[in-house]
Design a protein around this nucleic acid. Sequence first.
DNA 1: AACAATTTTGTATAAATATACAAAAACCTC
DNA 2: GAGGTTTTTGTATATTTATACAAAATTGTT
Lengths: 151, 151
Amino acid sequence: MARNSRQAKILEIISNKAIETQDELVSELRAANFDITQATISRDIKELGLIKIATENNKYKYAVIGNTQNPIATNKKMTIFKECVISIKTALNLVVVKTLNGTAGLVSNFIDSLSLNTILGCTYGDDTVMVVTQDVEDGKFIQSKLIELLN
Amino acid sequence: MARNSRQAKILEIISNKAIETQDELVSELRAANFDITQATISRDIKELGLIKIATENNKYKYAVIGNTQNPIATNKKMTIFKECVISIKTALNLVVVKTLNGTAGLVSNFIDSLSLNTILGCTYGDDTVMVVTQDVEDGKFIQSKLIELLN
DNA sequence: AACAATTTTGTATAAATATACAAAAACCTC
DNA sequence: GAGGTTTTTGTATATTTATACAAAATTGTT
């Protein structure tokens, strides 16, 4: 289905470029070979829980909302998790998850919500989530758990 | 000037009730004796950096955006700080700031941004910010500093 | 594969929002 | 307080966004 990859593409686009209107987003998507209309984008934006917010230069842009405020339902989060994660690696007791730029917060939030008890905590930047576990073994374990979820 | 109190009222309204459209907000404000039009609200929303976001029940509502993402300029934040703070009290090494419901995040963010070095950290809920200082003396000091800012 | 049921999408348009421009209000400065 | 300057607001409207409805696509079942 093109739908999920399209939504992932939307997250990618808005994290890399200031998108002011849905029509602008339509153009970007068309350029990336997604043949859709504004109506569909409007629905995607609602589903993804994206926001339109004022920027410093007195314009508007679409953005991914921060984790605590994000009201997207869990199965939607799961879908997004799958779409946004690029790689999952371990380094000793850390699991390093690479994501589409700008979506690390969403991914981190999702991982937190799993409440896996061998996870001590998560931090994230723009495109990286760091999952801290007790030891090397736990790191490997969490890595495999997360990879499982991608299927 | 009615403008600042109106904007504060907007923050209060949206934190207490799900507001789906600007027209709805206009009605609420009219009920609170602010005689304005949709155009003004549109501008206020832009200035306050408010967002319209999808809710669980498949509708939209306006909301205050979380602190880290908030791009409002400092002087605007200062104005909002003044408008949103209700009281500032101390309890031993804590400074307890009461705010309009839903705006504690904004206020906390503003206090953080002051980078006062006797502040150890801030936490917040919906209408309360807790500022932690080293000791009772520092608490009193920060309290007075914050009260100063209200003038 | 034929059919029914569900989901996704486009078209057309209604609904909602942003803004150009002009007027009004607030603020200065002399 | 007259006259100039800046800020705020309303009116009217252009722009943008959401959605009803129908069509198309996808999925599941036999």
